[in-house]
Design a protein around this nucleic acid. Structure first.
Length: 563
RNA sequence: UGGGGGAUCGUCCAACGGCAGGACUGCGGACUUUGGAUCCGCCAAUGGAGGUUCGAAUCCUCCUCCCCCAGCCA
């Protein structure tokens, strides 16, 4: 063991390291506490990586706990989806799967204790009255007329609430703290409400349910959580968190620490907006590849390692932040460059006939699967007289700096030969280029010219007779503005109309015939593509995960902007 | 006019009284059988005013700006 400790990466790890060094804890325990009322997104990934990551780094453990105290909004479907997402991200809670609802009986008993010690009372004001009595940000509240009910009466009423004798909203249990506090959370906050609703786990056992501010500190204490990490908006709740733990006979004293939630440019992360995008059909569902949900990113082809790396790079702080989505995309490319097998695919095909190549001849050329990983080996790729090239790789009148194919010009076909464009065949009616007639140089097999002559470009291609048809879905950012809604106030105004382009006439090399959903490939010179779950043998479907940097496209863009 | 937080390159994160550093982005260049990748370089910041100190992003005072809080949601 080195005596010189490494500098913790952020203020929370600093606190944890200090606590451990001071002997405050033998072992730290954190928790990831999602409410099962929606799907996890990249913002949750930050919290998951933080909580599970800290536990791993400091030799502790992290619990998965569902914060299921509101039966009206929560469903088993979300529980299942959340567990799948956390596992996919690469974290393991082992046997530590918990639910706040597991603790309902104990929480009820803690509530009884608060009543008996005069710290809580049953309030029979209506919701509207409670709001009025609460006061405002600048004026103190008024005490409820029920605030000084005798303990016995509170006990009896609370038990009858639990027994189901009252309709929803008739009474609540409130903490007796301070109606004049500048912190509204301390103005006798509601601890329990009556809800005659079926809970996804406890069924009809309960008709009173604890609120977050009561349930969360108790759940933490019951699980022995040492560091309870949450986002900044709960900073105001910490005094209440501490109040609950101080006034209930809990087995230990967890501490709450707050960090800034993640915001990402060119997207939205609020649950409300995500729901709206899905429900109004702006996207195809929760796993639409354009969404920042974990299920969407999975379908898009983002590897979990890339997301973990991203969460490492963004750090943890307390200030408002908007992380550039380009950093996420960088992490995705970094990971995929290391791991994705290379293949050739032509998205917008242009037929090319090699007029001097023997009719009926087929050659098997050897292609490298991943230049970053020699162990990935090679594969054979068939070559023949009729090929498809990318339409973008040919220009009849090439501008400066366009090095690809043009009339009279020679280029290399990857792993194959040099070819020279001899003739451009156009549709007699429309003038559209329908075919290129080229010659190949048999001496350049493998891509080298014996006479030493060079070409400026290497193009990808597929053999027409062997190519496999595919649909390719080109995804781009869902929003066209860095901060959706910043200009007009309505985030939908910034929806990027070009966020999805579907290409149905693509061709991929035959090694992809049996490509399975979830597999991610690099289509050379184009980008990374993930086999979609809609894909079938004979009807392949790919999602574009990320583009490769295209210098020519960039030049072109710059030129267009100048014009 | 209440309470709680926060201000460092365009963005995110560091620097814990001692040369403001890294990453992403952008812009150049080298290399290249992916115009990919890789490599090299450049641009670029301590919100403001005072004070303490040999020395301040860091400590003190005042100011300015931004965010959160008035659910029987979490």
């Amino acid at each position: 063991m080195s005596t010189r400790a490494v500098q913790p990466r952020d203020f929370i790890r600093q606190i944890v390291a200090d606590d451990l060094a001071a002997g405050k804890y033998q072992r730290i325990i954190t928790r990831f506490p999602p409410e099962p009322n929606g799907y996890l997104h990249i913002g949750h990934a930050k919290s998951i990586c933080l909580n599970f990551g800290i536990a791993q780094e400091f030799g502790g453990v992290c619990n998965l706990r569902f914060d299921d105290t509101n039966p009206i909004k929560e469903e088993q479907e979300y529980v299942d989806a959340i567990m799948a997402d956390v596992r996919w991200l690469g974290f393991d809670w082992e046997d530590r799967l918990f639910f706040a609802s597991d603790y309902f009986q104990q929480m009820y008993e803690y509530a009884l204790h608060l009543i008996k010690t005069g710290k809580a009372y049953v309030c029979s004001l209506s919701p509207e009255e409670i709001r009025e009595y609460r006061g405002t940000l600048t004026e103190p509240g008024k005490e409820s007329p029920y605030r000084n009910r005798p303990v016995e009466e509170n006990l009896e009423l609370f038990q009858r609430m639990k027994a189901g004798e009252f309709p929803d909203g008739a009474h609540v249990l409130r903490a007796k703290i301070d109606m004049a506090s500048g912190n509204l959370n301390l103005r006798d906050p509601v601890l329990y409400r009556i809800l005659h609703a079926r809970h996804h786990r406890t069924g009809d056992t309960w008709c009173i349910y604890p609120l977050y501010d009561f349930a969360h500190p108790l759940s933490d204490a019951l699980e022995g959580i040492t560091h309870s990490l949450c986002t900044l908006e709960f900073e105001d709740h910490r005094p209440l968190y501490d109040w609950v733990l101080e006034n209930c006979p809990v087995p230990c004293r967890p501490r709450q620490y707050e960090f800034a939630r993640l915001n990402l440019s060119y997207t939205v992360l609020s649950k409300r907006k995500l729901v709206q995008l899905v429900q109004e059909g702006h996207v195809s569902g929760w796993d639409d590849p354009r969404l920042p949900t974990l299920s969407g990113m999975r379908r898009r082809g983002y590897p979990p390692a890339a997301i973990r790396r991203f969460c490492d790079l963004i750090g943890v702080g307390k200030r408002e932040n908007v992380v550039d989505v380009a950093l996420l995309e960088y992490c995705v490319r970094e990971e995929l460059n290391r791991t994705a097998p290379r293949v050739m695919a032509v998205l917008r095909p242009l037929k090319v006939v090699l007029t001097n190549y023997p009719e009926g001849q087929v050659e098997e050329l050897e292609a490298i699967n991943n230049p970053e990983d020699p162990a990935a080996g090679t594969r054979p790729v068939p070559f023949s007289r009729v090929l498809y090239l990318e339409r973008d790789d040919f220009l009849e009148q090439p501008p400066k700096k366009f090095y690809r194919l043009a009339p009279g010009r020679e280029v290399r076909l990857r792993y194959a030969y040099f070819i020279r464009c001899e003739e451009v065949v156009k549709h007699p009616g429309t003038g559209e280029i329908v075919e290129l007639r080229c010659t190949y140089d048999p001496a350049t097999k493998g891509g080298q010219a014996p006479d030493g002559r060079k070409v400026k470009a290497t193009l990808h291609w597929v053999s027409a007779a062997h190519a496999v048809p595919a649909e390719v879905r080109l995804y781009d950012r869902l929003f066209a503005a860095p901060e959706p809604g910043a200009a007009t106030g309505n985030f939908l105004d910034d929806l990027n109309p070009g966020s999805l382009e579907v290409l149905t006439t693509c061709w991929v090399e035959p090694s992809l015939t049996r490509a399975a959903p979830g597999e991610i490939y690099q289509f050379e010179r184009l980008g990374y593509f993930c086999v979609d779950r809609d894909s079938r043998e004979g009807r392949l479907v790919f999602n574009r995960t990320a583009t490769l940097k295209d210098v020519w496209a960039k030049l072109q863009q710059a030129q267009q902007q100048e014009a």
